[in-house]
Amino acid sequence: MPAVHDRGGLPCDEPIDRAEHEWADWEHVTNALVGVLRRHGLINVDELRRGIEAMAPAEYESASYYERWSASIETLLVEKGILSQAEIDAAAAMLDARWG
């Protein structure tokens, strides 16, 4: 069984959807955070990839592209002790409450 990210050759009879979506603000932020964190030497592309590939298969398959990036950024920052899981959870809960 190949790992979930190893998609080449998996059976698929769907046509390729060529519709483009405009990046949402949070997708721009996600993309940019990777760039900034790389610039500071805090994460690299291989680590980002590893964080994505380590996602649970069901989560990987249901997530959108930048949802996968976002999940990996969170994993890496916690792993490296740059942010704690508890403070990310708290800050996210605060934003959720504010935006209701």
Binding site: W26, I88, A91, A92, L95
Partner: peptide
């Protein structure tokens, strides 16, 4: 996109 959008913006805020 509640979950991940909120979380990445929370992460930006903390950083």
């Amino acid at each position: 996109r509640g979950l991940r959008a909120t979380r990445i913006l929370a992460i930006r805020r903390l950083l």
